[in-house]
Simulated assay, not measured.
Amino acid sequence: MSAPVEQQVEFGGLVIGYDHRVLAPREWTTAQSRWIAELSASSAPGPVLELCTGAGQIGLLAACETGRELVCVESSAAAAGHLRRNAERAGLDARVEVRQQDLSTALEEGETFPLVTADPPWVISSAVSRFPEDPLSAIDGGADGLTVARTCLSVIARHLAPQGAAVLQLGSRSQVESLGTMAEQLDLCVRETRSYDRGVLVLLEASA
């Protein structure tokens, strides 16, 4: 069997490589990286944590624009391989730590981060056939599209530093509303949402 063919795309000034096993970078998600950069100016020192990293474009652009270190959590070996190569291509490999692990085991008790970004799968299972070019594991979010997002929310609640901020990507405002109760139960609150043609970004902070 021949090796997967790497494709490359420009993403906010970075060259990002990926193949058919990894979700292709979406240009609109540069907004997620740049929101993290906005927040960085008033955040405490420390690395950015990225959950559900994929090929790494969102976190790498955030690291490039903030000057911060980056800790990436990604369970897929294929995606983690592209992430490492993309970090090296961008000259960021010395500032990027890749944890190829499940979300539930990748972080140590007591580890906290001032900034978190997460891009979980958020397509509802009944709709994934509309996106045959995308790998199923990268887009299938379960019956309501929020299965992995809920796990991300739990991780954020445990590992967000005091006065920290997290930017979570979802598919719609209705999904944001559905997560609202869980966020409150975890002492997180939705501070702001920003809507785009292809998705929604949500700013989460610890409740006062």
Rank of each mutant, 00 (worst) to 15 (best):
Q101S: 13
A37G: 02
E69T: 12
G91E: 08
R89E: 07
P114T: 10
V155G: 03
E50D: 14
D134A: 15
R191P: 05
F131T: 02
V48T: 03
Q7S: 15
L51V: 03
L61T: 00
S195M: 06
C189N: 10
A62F: 03
R34N: 12
G56D: 08
Q163K: 14
A94R: 12
S207F: 06
W28E: 15
S125N: 11
L51Q: 06
L92N: 05
E109G: 08
G12Q: 05
W122S: 08
E69G: 15
A118V: 09
P45I: 07
A208C: 11
V167T: 04
Q163D: 14
L146P: 00
E88M: 10
S174K: 10
S174L: 11
V200M: 06
R158Q: 14
V15L: 13
L160W: 03
D19T: 04
S174H: 11
S195W: 02
P120F: 07
V73L: 09
G110S: 06
E50V: 03
I16C: 05
T30K: 14
A80Y: 04
L61Y: 11
N86Y: 03
G54A: 05
C64D: 13
V202T: 05
D134C: 13
A62Y: 07
V73K: 11
T181F: 10
S172K: 03
G17M: 09
L179G: 00
G56W: 09
D140A: 05
D19Q: 10
I124Q: 14
